[in-house]
């Protein structure tokens, strides 16, 4: 297919999105990620039955937590894409990239840079 997607995206592979925990997403933001999105299998298609459904609930909870601390829940999203659906994967990557570009950098980026420099 030779599809391209924005090179701002780093993929972290997991056996199932059911493995994603709130703390994993929080740590990503704490380390300076501008946005995070979790891509699971289509609903009803989870090999482990409910992994992707659980992931969505955790993502929703983390969004509220990010809102609470002023990082912004809109920097986080959950998508369900079939493993064979390359075009949709590229489309979502672009969509998320554009959303984050519009939002600007993670508000703690500045503090992280200063800390590194010190």
């Amino acid at each position: 297919m030779r599809l391209t997607y924005p090179d701002s995206i780093r993929i972290i592979r997991l056996p199932c999105t059911g493995k994603v925990d709130v703390i994993h997403i929080m740590k990503a933001f704490q380390k300076g990620a501008d946005g995070v999105y979790v891509v699971g299998c289509l609903e009803g298609e989870c090999h482990f039955l409910t992994g992707n459904l659980r992931a969505r609930k955790r993502v929703e909870y983390t969004k509220s937590l990010l809102d609470e601390i002023g990082i912004g829940g809109e920097r986080l999203e959950m998508y369900n894409i079939a493993a064979s659906d390359g075009p949709r994967f590229a489309e979502v990557a672009k969509e998320m990239h554009e959303r984050i570009m519009a939002l600007g950098p993670n508000p703690i980026r500045g503090a992280l840079k200063r800390k590194k420099a010190a």
């Binding site: 703390i23 933001f29 704490q30 937590l65 601390i69 508000p107 703690i108 992280l112 800390k115």
Partner: peptide, 21 residues
């Protein structure tokens, strides 16, 4: 333990956002 980790992360980020450590 898990909630401690999450809260620690949230508080650290909330402080950083205000430019404090």
């Amino acid at each position: 333990k898990k909630e401690v980790e999450i809260l620690a992360s949230a508080l650290t980020m909330a402080f950083m956002k205000e430019g404090r450590e």
